[in-house]
Design a protein around this nucleic acid. Sequence first.
DNA 1: TTGTAGGCGTTATCAG
DNA 2: CTGATAACGCCTACAA
Lengths: 338, 338
Amino acid sequence: MGPMSTILDVAKIAGVSTATVSRVINSPDQVKEETREKVYRAMKTCRYQYNALARGFVTKRSNTIGLIIPTISNPVFAESTRGVQDVAGTGDFHVILGNSYYDGDKEAKLIEVLRERQVEGLIITTTNMQGEILKRLQDDGFPFVLLYSTVRKGPMSAVGVDNYLGGYRATEHLIKLGHTRIAMLAGNFSISDRSFHRWHGYKKCLKDHDIPYDAKMLRQTGFGLGNVKECVQELLSSDSPPTAVFCSNDLVALSAMEGAREMGLDVPGNLSVVGFDDMPLSSYVYPRLTTIYQPAYDMGRRATEILMSQTREEKGKPVQEMMGVRLVVRDSTAPPRG
Amino acid sequence: MGPMSTILDVAKIAGVSTATVSRVINSPDQVKEETREKVYRAMKTCRYQYNALARGFVTKRSNTIGLIIPTISNPVFAESTRGVQDVAGTGDFHVILGNSYYDGDKEAKLIEVLRERQVEGLIITTTNMQGEILKRLQDDGFPFVLLYSTVRKGPMSAVGVDNYLGGYRATEHLIKLGHTRIAMLAGNFSISDRSFHRWHGYKKCLKDHDIPYDAKMLRQTGFGLGNVKECVQELLSSDSPPTAVFCSNDLVALSAMEGAREMGLDVPGNLSVVGFDDMPLSSYVYPRLTTIYQPAYDMGRRATEILMSQTREEKGKPVQEMMGVRLVVRDSTAPPRG
DNA sequence: TTGTAGGCGTTATCAG
DNA sequence: CTGATAACGCCTACAA
């Protein structure tokens, strides 16, 4: 990679000024055809390559947005990421991707360095709602939108689903099937308020059906396929084990099913399992997973549309958008045995 | 977002020169503690935020690499992407992600715009091996490494697996099980030479076991979950249908199994299926998928290590690295019936 | 240890 | 339609 040639080189070769070269790049019709051709030829002879960074530097527009998610390994985040990329691309934006791995500090660090790199906006699936970080962004008037958010009003833009409702629907399905001992495997509340809302929906549904809430039926797990198996197995080893479990996402549900199977139990025979997300592969797993669908791809798209309009307008009002969830009944749930 | 303050503002407030401010940012120990503190205070009072773009502009180092994959929706690419991000992060690099969607033109366009944006290097899972594009990168001395590559020698850096061997192993497994009518569902050769190599391994294995190769047993499909089902169903409807099928990736394998099931056939009872990739969820699907494992995460890591060393050194020799594949036998394969 | 000043590649403002 | 020229925010010799 020798030194690249610049518009100055081009200008010299073509015998014009740099301003003219810049014009043929940005508004070709403002320059006489003859000179335009001359410039094109000059570009070719010195193998000129445009430097978008330099432009960004003067126009103060990097044409880049940052996307922070917990981890790209979760297929549901992969879907929303694709949504983000697709609409960003149509606006000639690029996206820098960062994984927070559900770590608030990593998340904060990412936000900081992405801002240093002059991203024009941020899409964040936050792991640290309470933190000062978002407030800081807010104060600075820095454009950002929360993705997979529980926020429904206030000064921040957000797109998400009604997690409370999702939790309610999942639980309701189980109750209608005849279950009364229903556990919940929730992602750690300190790390995800989504999980917290789902738990509230779960509790409310229990109450509406006169099933007493039992705190021992709640287990907070990590989010990966971490200690989930142990959690179910503890649950299932208690003196009055659950006959069903609502998991705060599909990945957790998969581990839960495996944990149950390791104990020689059948899903859904001995244990019904419902997940949350409906990631693309959930209809292929065994047993096919009953779960709450949320429109990941579209959420990614929508968040990006909002962000992009936000970066352009001077003072766009914040917009919150809640998209629909729906219960998808498949094979991992059934009436309790005997 | 009002105008941000610059080191000049900081300098004025602190009563020092911009050079000094720059020093406290880049080499704090080169400046007397007293002035250093003064500068820090000044930064605070004007809420100074570092502009990494400006630095990149002068140092000609964007600290960014581009990553081009077919689609982030395929979990195997998500895994390697995570590998890339993880090691890029340790080198203070960021990664801009682009999906080519298996489209050579999109891929070319992505390479172009990423170069304009001054990425320091590119990691590409190419869809267009033959194209001029890579040659162009080569000629320009632009650092890049091919990921999921079949390249084993020559001037380009690459990391991948032995696809030929993978195809061979998969087929061998089927043959040892007693199958003789073995089909292959291959991703379109024009789009993926990986698939092409796997097919060669498949053919060679057939030959080594005196099973005549039958061209009608090969179907080239798209890569998503596109027309795969129809392909299997055609195959299975022929007068002498296959008893087993080797699929060029796990996603295709899932569709194939579904296609067979739709015809009322049992997997592996009536049809054995083996995939390729061993994506993280393949052990959860039903039936648990027999497949060829390739170390996606590590491949992503390795590719990035190579690239990063390449961007630093002046004239690093190209390095090719082939990582191990291995057959993972699970439940989607069995001896043929009767 | 600190300051001065030139330069990075492009755009944008004015003139011509 | 085209040309000077001053930014943009930071780094880096070179001097002091």
